[in-house]
Write a protein that binds this DNA or RNA. Structure first.
Lengths: 239, 239
DNA sequence: AAACTTAGCGTAACATATACGCTAAGTTTT
DNA sequence: AAAACTTAGCGTATATGTTACGCTAAGTTT
């Protein structure tokens, strides 16, 4: 057994994009007696940290184990430290039982992470739910997700985060739909294309969309190296 | 003696603006044997948290005690968790001695805060130093300050943080100088005035600058309530 | 052929940013 | 009284970016 630090934990809000909806990855808790279910069956992926691990490393490891992906986008966005956050008592009891530790107060460092659902290899006992329609979760995890979404909305305006959520090969329309879903406002397709067109790090492939009952769309990929070269000149990424 | 949590601490990077320079408030360590001074005499204000306190509350208390100010601007901007951060060994020995605890690893939650130097009542054993010319500090405190400055630079573009650093009564020129110092680039005074002019939450006072050997400048104050009313309409604060 | 969406051209109205010339006014210093 | 200095404001040309919209053509399935 690893040597756990019972005072500090890491929680990850994993966002994905599927069927035009922004989703969060949740874990179904084990060993929950029926007596206190009441919808509190789900939680965010996360763990108490080990004594010798940097938090970022701990978060990365948690994610790799869970999704089968490495090089995932990961961003620390907040700390949740309220002394009363490990409530209700049934949830605290569950944590003590499953961790085997008499935890009392846990300060949790929260990360959000962006993954390509289509390319991940998610392990069992997990479920993707739309962020705008979540049930009650354990502890303060609903609040953590709300804060993560605020941070994501803020940062996706200035950084090319959308490519972390889109599949490797994507169409301009998919890209626009993602922005519309996250920012919650419709955009003009013609103007959107005009903005995207001159970006040299969005590269057309020799391949088109298939099996759609309309003109197939051009597929593109994101070239991170070219983006890095241009970012200093362009002073960011604004859509 | 309060019941301290030896695993989690709070550190505050307190910025102030004086003589046209952005400064940081540092504390002179006590009980430092001459044998390992080497410049490591200074540290950021901060403490281990108590078992029952929310971190924000802990940071607020630390600041009030230190500056005599309440309602200080305070923002949590990062977590520093590297297992090796409590080095060199002399510094760790000092922490163990002064805290009376066998601390081993401390995850610190870092805040930056903005204060009006002229109106604060700073306690002893502290010193204001220019951020661009700091000596070596204890632990990883130089790194924490660098990160705080990055966060401040980012956020001062979108929020009216400058008024936290300026005195209650300020001139447009002082405001411009502050922006120039923090963002590190000169600005055109005429254009700056044009941008500031239409902002209804910057209110002229019936009072002018004194004891300067040129035309005295108009003094202004910032009205937070009016700003809050307009912010939704204006979608932010950009300079 | 109809239905649908992609892909692109064009443009008018409007807002913002940046650089810079110019004038007048109010204070202290000489 | 003049010189030195900074505040305070007007004006303007240029470039750049945003938003809304009309229009055409092309490629796929039904």
């Amino acid at each position: 057994m690893v040597n756990l630090n019972p005072h500090v934990s890491v929680d990850c809000v994993i966002f994905g994009f599927h069927d035009g909806k922004l989703k969060v990855l949740l874990i179904e808790r084990e060993e929950v007696p029926k007596s206190y279910l009441k919808g509190h069956k789900l939680k965010l992926p996360g763990n108490l940290i080990t004594q010798s691990e940097d938090l970022d490393i701990s978060a990365i490891r948690t994610l790799e184990e869970l999704t089968g992906l490495d090089r995932i986008f990961l961003k620390q966005f907040g700390v949740f430290s309220s002394p009363g956050r490990l409530s209700p008592p049934e949830d605290l009891a569950w944590l003590r039982k499953t961790s085997g530790l008499m935890v009392d107060r846990v300060v949790t460092i929260a990360y959000y992470s962006l993954i390509k659902i289509s390319e991940s290899n998610i392990t069992e006992r997990t479920i993707w739910l739309a962020v705008d329609d979540l049930p009650d979760l354990i502890f303060d995890h609903n609040r953590i997700i709300r804060k993560a979404l605020e941070a994501l909305r803020q940062e996706i305006r200035n950084e090319p985060l959308c490519f972390e959520l889109l599949p490797k090969k994507f169409t301009i329309r998919q890209m626009q739909n993602l922005y519309e879903e996250i920012l919650g406002e419709p955009m003009d397709n013609r103007n959107f294309r005009k903005k995207v067109k001159p970006l040299e790090f969005i590269i057309p492939l020799a391949e088109k969309e298939k099996e759609v009952n309309h003109k197939p769309a051009q597929l593109y990929k994101f070239d991170k190296k070219i983006y890095e070269k241009h970012r200093k000149v362009l002073s960011g990424f604004n859509l």
